[in-house]
Write a protein that binds this DNA or RNA. Structure first.
Lengths: 149, 149
DNA sequence: AATTATTCTACTACTTCGATAGACATTATA
DNA sequence: TATAATGTCTATCGAAGTAGTAGAATAATT
């Protein structure tokens, strides 16, 4: 499961991306709009800033904006950044690889083979999806819901 | 990521499945063969027994055997049993569904839509794979490695 | 200088994870 | 029937991770 932190990060990014990028967005505005504890959100936005996803402006009329554009921000990247590996076991992870402590031979491990297949399927989806895609999907869902009425 | 507990469970099941099912397999034998702390393994095997996957025999010459056959034991089932939801967020889980605390409308949530796609991909793989499949893969990998030499 | 905001450090409470210890119950066989 | 071997159960532990909070420091604007 994703941590709440990762979920909050994605929700916050979505919110920021949907606003005009002229004025910085306040932490407190995001916090209220998305029901995220403000102080917790602070830490999350800072982390996203350090990772080069957001930029911030201090002081009056300060706040956060995207540094990358929404179609450059990859969902898999954000999840890995906040929560670490996406794979079910570290022995099949790209970015967080660790050898298996129990396995005698990773190359012939059946479990590893299975878990690797899951990882491929997951990362194929996540590394091909951007923040912009997520927002598009939301808009499409809202439209089709409206049409049905 | 899978917990070590889930990984141990799968490794232990694999080991048991590979032995002849005439004699019960000792906890201590599995523990040594698979590098799993014995006392921890005890608790895991008990849980698998309670779930109807294994049967046990107490006393001298006791031990564990499969209760279901290896091609009936579903990998997704084992993982869910030990670790809980496979989905990244509970709002897209079958067995562990919980409404999203922050979302105003789950039906139109872009994040939910994305996460749902990941869940489908993952469960499609895992619910179609059995313990027997995992063992077959291992044997195939070992063979093809042998041929290369 | 005052105000409004982000930034940073530190902390707390809680839960889960991984593992261990020891008493208890059951079974086979000598 | 004694005894050795084995699973069952309860309780506990330390380390790590999760979610969230408090408050001072810093920067930008008016």
């Amino acid at each position: 499961m994703l941590s709440k932190k990762a979920k909050y990060a994605l929700k916050a990014l979505e919110y920021i991306a949907k606003q005009s990028d002229i004025n910085p967005i306040l932490i407190s505005e995001i916090s209220e709009a998305q029901n995220i504890p403000k102080k917790f959100l602070e830490a999350i936005l800072l982390e996203l800033k350090r990772a080069g996803i957001l930029k911030s402006k201090k002081g009056k009329f300060g706040g956060y904006n995207l540094l990358q554009s929404a179609d450059e921000i990859n969902l898999g990247f954000i999840i890995r950044l906040i929560d670490g590996p996406i794979s079910l076991i570290a022995c099949v992870s790209d970015k967080y690889y660790e050898p298996c402590a129990e396995c005698e031979n990773e190359a012939t491990c059946g479990l590893r083979n299975v878990v690797n297949e899951v990882r491929d399927a997951t990362t194929n989806i996540l590394t091909n999806l951007t923040l912009a895609d997520m927002i598009k999907r939301e808009q499409r869902l809202k439209k089709s819901k409206g049409n049905k009425k």
